[in-house]
């Protein structure tokens, strides 16, 4: 099974409403795309995405998503100094659950392993 990787600039999603943004992401992920968003999602958008994902799982070709946010080096440095904050991320990856394994270590390095 093949997957595509969509790098989505912030201009593509910045004017979308909460619901449209979630639909935009989920539609692509269900169609076997790994979506890399230039912007971060708010916690409410992340929760909304999880909620909507649950309603779209069909237990055949879509079992859910992998969701991970990437911290910038500056954010990571501030995090180590002052503690982790949930709203200071830069970009976000949303992928079909069976497409990738995503590992993130405490140095902030994100490793994505593509499943065959």
């Amino acid at each position: 099974m093949s997957f595509s990787v969509d790098f989505v600039p912030s201009t593509e999603t910045q004017d979308l409403s909460y619901h449209d943004k979630i639909n935009y992401i989920l539609t692509r992920v269900i169609q076997r795309s790994i979506v890399v968003l230039e912007t971060s999602l708010t916690p409410e958008e992340e929760m909304g995405l999880i909620e909507k994902t649950m309603k779209h799982i069909n237990f055949k070709d879509f079992n859910g998503i992998r969701l991970v946010s990437f911290d910038s080096g500056e954010t990571l440095r501030r995090t180590k100094l002052f503690g982790r904050s949930s709203n200071t991320r830069t970009f976000t990856i949303v992928a079909p659950n069976d497409a990738v394994s995503i590992l993130k270590d405490d140095r902030g390095i994100l490793s994505i392993k593509f499943n065959r």
Partner: peptide
């Protein structure tokens, strides 16, 4: 387990919001 699970941050972010 490794604590950097996105679900934890999503829950915490929503509680804060």
């Amino acid at each position: 387990k490794h604590p950097f699970d996105q679900v934890n941050f999503t829950i915490i972010g929503n509680l804060e919001a």
